[in-house]
Design a protein around this nucleic acid. Structure first.
Lengths: 211, 211
DNA sequence: TAGATTGTTAATCGATTAACAATC
DNA sequence: TAGATTGTTAATCGATTAACAATC
């Protein structure tokens, strides 16, 4: 159905942004939009909009444009936001807790079903409807529950070790918040890094070099 | 001194990564490295390393390579991590608190000096050594304290309004965590977006399309 | 000096933009 | 039908990689 043979990361990283803007247009009950108008709102070119969308299929109609709600649903499917992926959180520190409490996982097609920490003080704490378990229980938990992905909110030095465990348990997708680049030891894994300090350093650079 | 006339964002976004790897090498007391070895560790090409570094100056020495500690310091300066920028946090929800508590601001050349929220329940709470103030006190606070940047951990709908206030107070740098693209109304502003949900959607795409 | 490795130019590759024929 | 706007090919632009002369 789709022609998503080898979509470049540049395109993939723009998809959530399309999804966000289309969702907003949809909420405003706007039901059609041309590539030109969408491009204006998003501060990109109409060519790029059409090129990007045509990586996945011809969603538009000549002389009319695109149906907002239809296009939004198409992108939702392309992003796989209907999969209800089961996720566990490793690390219940400040950042881990914030990730657990702050994100609207349902809207993004994820469900947080477990949380683990190796600090006794954290065990038993409640985050929304889940209770922090000891990391020793990880193996058992993952044997009895199918887990699709792990959110890593642990210090840099713990990552390698945790990754080995997770991979052995069949978990091959990682959302990594540690100040550490996960090098893909296994080609069948998927890694998304969120490097907050890199982001802040980039801001610093630009403040430092503002005209 | 530097030739940083118009460094591309691709290069800028790689700088923190160089800084991270060089810091690590430095901690391991390695004092020289060639572009080839650094490239291997970082999973990029030696050409790219040399091209990137030469945007800012000739830090290496033919036949020898680069001094790790010197290069690390150079990049630290390029990134402006010695500026001790004063920052305020707007929004003391889960994410705002985590940002305040979790980040090593000193190491990154920032100092968090204030925190504001419009929810009465948050007022008076303590985050590290700062106390959450009511947003009404923002004007006063910024008049008596020089502030360089604001970290925005507030809902999407509040952003525009807060931005107007901040800009009027002379704050022109924003680290934005809201699910909202800040469109630069003023050309003298600097914006760094952290879109956590976009990041998770990208992970979803790749899980969905993993072979 | 010989070997190693940079700085830099040139070649390649990929991504973005422009143009336009197809078509609703 | 005429006007609008897509899908797609071709042109341009920028970023990455390769090559090599300069030099420590």
């Amino acid at each position: 159905m789709s022609k998503n043979d080898s979509i470049s990361m540049s395109v993939i990283r723009r998809l959530p942004r399309y999804y966000r803007f289309l969702s907003e247009l949809n909420e405003q009950h706007i039901d059609r939009i041309s590539s030109t108008k969408l491009a204006n709102i998003m501060n990109i070119t109409a060519s790029q909009v059409r090129q990007d969308l045509n990586c996945f299929g011809g969603f538009g109609q000549q002389g009319y444009g695109y149906s907002v709600s239809q296009l939004k649903e198409e992108i939702k499917n392309i992003l796989g936001l209907n999969n209800n992926y089961k996720a566990i959180l490793i690390g219940a520190g400040n950042l881990g807790k914030a990730v657990a409490m702050h994100m609207s996982f349902e809207k993004l097609g994820f469900e947080l079903v477990g949380c683990f920490d190796n600090n006794e003080k954290k065990i038993g704490q409640q985050l929304n409807n889940i209770i922090v378990k000891h990391e020793d229980e990880l193996e058992d938990f993952c044997t009895y529950n199918h887990i699709d992905t792990a959110f890593l909110c642990i210090p840099r030095i713990c990552v390698e070790n945790v990754l080995d465990k997770l991979y052995a348990l069949g978990i091959k997708s990682y959302w990594n918040f540690s100040h550490y680049d996960i090098t893909r030891h296994h080609s069948d894994t998927v890694v998304e890094n969120v490097h907050l300090s890199d982001s802040l350093m980039t801001l610093s650079y630009r403040m430092n070099n503002a005209e």
